[in-house]
Simulated assay, not measured.
Amino acid sequence: MRKKDRELTAPADLLAIMQAADRAVLAFNGDPAPYLLPVNPGVEWTGDRFILYLHGATEGTKYRYLVDGAPVSFEMDAHHALVADRDRGYCTMYYASVIGQGIAYELLDAEAKARALQVIIDSYHIDEGFAYNPAALPRTRVFKIEVRAITGKAKGPKV
C-alpha cells in the first residue's frame, strides 16, 4: 500500500467498515471479461477470520461463477464525503474501504442457511426480533465466503 498512514489492519476497524457498507462487489474470473456481482452481504468475525454471507434466487447468471469452492475477490466501502476547497481549487474524497479474497461455499444444510440469513438480516439492523418467512429457505441459495486475505484503507478528517 503506497500510503501506509491510511492502512487499517485491526479486525475491529475492518469489521466496522464492512458493517457500515450496504453492499459488496464480488469479482470472478469470467469469459470474455471479469464478472462483477453486487450483493448485500451479512458479515461476521469468528475470532480468526471474516465470513461474508450472501443469498439469491435459485437461478441466474451469477451461478456460472458462484460455485462451491470458487475463488472470489470483493470490495466494500463506506463513509464517503466529498471535500472541496474552492479557494485552493482542491477537492478530495473521504472514504473507508476493504478489499479481500476468499473462497465461496454453498450452504446446503437448512440450519446453516437459516443462520446465515439471520446474520444477513442482523447486518442491516432490521428491528430486533425480525423473523423471515422460513418458506423462503427452499427457494433461496445461500453462500458463505471464507475470507483468506483482506486489506483496509481510510482517508478522513484529522482528529
Rank of each mutant, 00 (worst) to 15 (best):
S97P: 03
D127M: 15
S73Q: 14
E75L: 11
R139C: 02
A12W: 05
L108K: 14
K155I: 01
G129L: 11
I150P: 02
V67Q: 15
E111Y: 13
F143N: 02
A104F: 02
I120Q: 02
P11W: 04
F50S: 00
E128L: 13
G42I: 00
A20I: 08
V83Q: 15
P157R: 13
V72C: 05
A27N: 09
S123I: 03
T61I: 08
V67W: 14
M76L: 13
D13I: 00
A81N: 12
P71S: 09
I150L: 07
N40Q: 09
Y132P: 00
L107N: 05
Q19D: 14
E106I: 00
R23G: 12
P157E: 11
V25I: 11
Y105A: 07
L107W: 04
A110H: 14
K4P: 04
D31M: 10
T58E: 09
N40V: 05
M76D: 05
D87G: 12
T151M: 03
D68L: 06
V43L: 05
V72T: 02
P11K: 08
V72P: 01
E7K: 12
R49L: 01
R49M: 06
Y53N: 02
A135Y: 13
N40E: 06
V142S: 00
L36P: 00
A27F: 02
E128I: 00
D22K: 08
R148I: 00
R23P: 10
M18N: 03
D22I: 12
R86W: 15
L8R: 13
A16Y: 05
D48A: 11
I145T: 01
R23Q: 15
R139S: 07
A33W: 10
Y94F: 15
G42M: 01
D127I: 05
A81L: 13
T61A: 08
I145K: 02
N40H: 11
A16T: 00
V39R: 00
R2Y: 11
Q118W: 06
F74V: 04
G69P: 02
K4T: 12
P134K: 06
P41K: 04
N40C: 10
G100V: 01
K153T: 06
C91H: 14
D31I: 03
L82Y: 06
L37A: 03
F28L: 05
G89Y: 11
Y65Q: 07
M18W: 01
R23S: 15
E7L: 10
E146D: 10
E44M: 05
R23F: 14
R148S: 13
K3G: 11
D68C: 09
A114D: 10
P41L: 04
A114S: 09
P157C: 04
H55Q: 05
Y63R: 09
K113V: 01
A84W: 10
P138W: 02
M76S: 06
